[in-house]
Design a protein around this nucleic acid. Structure first.
Lengths: 172, 172
DNA sequence: ACTACTGATGACAGCGACTGACATGGAGTG
DNA sequence: CACTCCATGTCAGTCGCTGTCATCAGTAGT
């Protein structure tokens, strides 16, 4: 992050990153599969928080409510990390390959969430659709939260956006 | 596509692709920004079909219905191209970077659709949410359609999935 | 017809991301 | 004290991608 913020992502080589960590470039690639992945270390933690939150939700709740509980749990992880999140987001949005990787991570969250819903007995089709819609809402909420420092905490924004989503997608 | 199907994406070099086209590798990179992009030539056409479909929808329809019309229009483009779509999808799903690029293209469709909705007077927030949800449904529909040769045409699958989405996201 | 000018291409050199192979060294184990 | 791991370093090589310069149409202008 220091290097990326100071010199920009593209102008930072993997050799630079490794040197800053006091390691060789080869060793960097033993810890991360590629240059992008250093910025996406925490996403696995988010996934497990959401999945656990889904598993812990009340048994009789409808799928999207269950997912909402999971997403709130995941959102809680970012409490107080607003500044870091903003810096990281600035780096990511500055570079196409990084934006793609971020989308891929969100797609992984969709898959994990859908699987967690299926685990609870939700049928595959609605599980996938709920996961897609819910994670999309999470992404939108995250963008808003990052764009408004000093605003409401992320879990609240997630709730707000989910409510908006329900209104927009309401059956005719 | 011939090279990718025959030897696999990773084992095909950009020099191979250029040679098959009777050009130099350098010239390949004058036509496409990177190796992945050869497989995503048609996505721009899909975008414009959807955007035009949105613009042409009845004036008083709610946002998600408008988007549905656009997505149906876009889906029509793939009529009769099931075999090609399957081959292409097989290549894309076989490779991480290609899946990422596909997600990026879908994200571009979200942005374009949301902008087209805003153009019609929809407020930004609901436009973005409708676009996210609608395109997610389109993606799910596309997956289903590709997985079931001989099944219903894509526009119908899109309608089906959108209806399912409405049910799943229905306000409590 | 002669002369620009333009636009697509080729040729070449070079950088940086990534990988395979082998060597080294230090921590633990018998 | 050997022996075995496991993390790391080193080195060479491939491939995606870019900058630069030359070539060579075709086209326009005079």
């Amino acid at each position: 992050m220091e290097l990326f913020v100071e010199h920009g992502y593209e102008r930072t080589t993997t050799a630079d990153i490794a040197a800053r960590a006091g390691l060789s470039e080869r060793t960097y690639f033993r810890h991360f599969p590629d240059k992008r992945e250093v910025l996406f270390d925490a996403t696995h933690a988010l996934d497990t928080l959401v999945v656990d939150g889904i598993a812990a939700a009340p048994a009789d709740a409808p799928p999207l409510d269950v997912l909402a509980a999971g997403l709130r749990a995941g959102a809680g992880m970012l409490d107080g990390l607003g500044d870091h999140a903003r810096a990281r987001t600035a780096v990511i949005t500055s570079q196409g390959e990084l934006r793609e990787r971020e989308l891929a991570k969100m797609s992984g969250l969709v898959t994990a969430s859908a699987a967690a819903l299926v685990e609870r007995g939700v049928a595959e089709a609605p599980a996938l659709l709920a996961a897609e819609a819910g994670v999309a809402a999470f992404r939108v909420a995250f963008e808003r939260w990052v764009a408004t420092p000093g605003g409401p905490p992320l879990p609240d924004v997630v709730d707000t956006v989910l409510a908006e989503l329900r209104r927009v997608v309401a059956p005719a």
